[in-house]
Design a protein around this nucleic acid. Structure first.
Lengths: 156, 156
DNA sequence: GGGCCACTGGTCAGGTTGCCCAGTGGATAC
DNA sequence: GTATCCACTGGGCAACCTGACCAGTGGCCC
């Protein structure tokens, strides 16, 4: 779905100040409340906005170490490996990819030592041929969406 | 910060049904409203909950292609490369890592053809020696936090 | 012209929020 | 044993916001 400038401004506003309500948003955007309500409904039902869940910081939960693991899977083992990985709480995300690896997953751990335990658990499963892990040192650009929203809203 | 079982249940509840308010949450959890309010304040001020921003789906915005690029940077160019990458809207996330690559970034694009444009823009910068890209085909485990929250809440 | 659609500005009842309070029970310190 | 602290309870309050309506207006397309 394409979004227009008003949608874009609304998304940016919500991203910056999530606690504001529909009424306050309508005041900031200079439109009627019903308009904001209708736009929000449309953005949600069209799937642009997936939800408003809390953003939880794994570091604050006691998992300050993040790593990315590239996995190589043996033929036909994909479904089993996925099920296995999704059963590991420290696996926050899993993608299947083109390229030299077959899967890429994001891991967290309580410490570098604990990361060993997590990796052992991840790769200790038949079907995983090889794994290479990159530990995250810094996160200069945390997951963001605002610049993309602004670009999408400008491309009307 | 460590969280207890009530915090964990609250986080899971909010993650599953973000639209419920404090009052409804207190009913579901079987505690007084003030307790939920106090827990929420603590979770937010301690940084466990970073916020309640809208989760925007890049695919619904017209960017259905996701890729991960591993970048090799020449000595001393780190800061410039970061600034350059953070100026590209299609770069949703950037990490510096250990291992063979120096940086890992998450990209989105309007199509596979458009991905070429994005990659050209990303790597067309002095200091980036080499880039290897893996296109995401499937996302069997979308970014999630609930299992980790449950584990953290159980480890009291 | 007629129909359609989005937006405006207004109303309404009902629910929720943020804030306060006194009282209770458990844990800890003296 | 007693005092202190802390989290939680259950209650109450005014103010605000929500979701739902409505009629009226203007732009756009057939």
């Amino acid at each position: 779905m394409a979004i227009d400038r008003l949608d874009g401004r609304l998304l940016v506003l919500l991203a910056r100040e999530p606690r504001i309500g529909v009424l306050e948003a309508s005041r900031r955007l200079g439109v009627a409340r019903g308009t904001v309500q209708a736009r929000l409904d449309r953005l949600q039902s069209s799937g642009v906005i997936r939800g408003f869940g809390p953003e939880v910081d794994p570091a604050a939960l006691g998992y300050p170490v993040t790593a990315f693991a590239t996995l190589e899977i043996s033929q036909g083992q994909g479904p089993d490996v996925r099920a296995h990985l999704s059963s590991v709480p420290e696996v926050l995300e899993l993608h299947t990819t083109t390229g030299s690896g077959d899967m890429l997953c994001r891991l967290v751990a309580r410490s570098n030592a604990d990361l060993q335990r997590v990796i052992d658990r991840v790769v200790g499963f038949p079907g995983i041929v090889r794994a290479s892990t990159a530990i995250v040192m810094e996160n200069p650009v945390p997951l963001r969406i605002i610049p993309l929203v602004e670009q999408a809203a400008a491309d009307v």
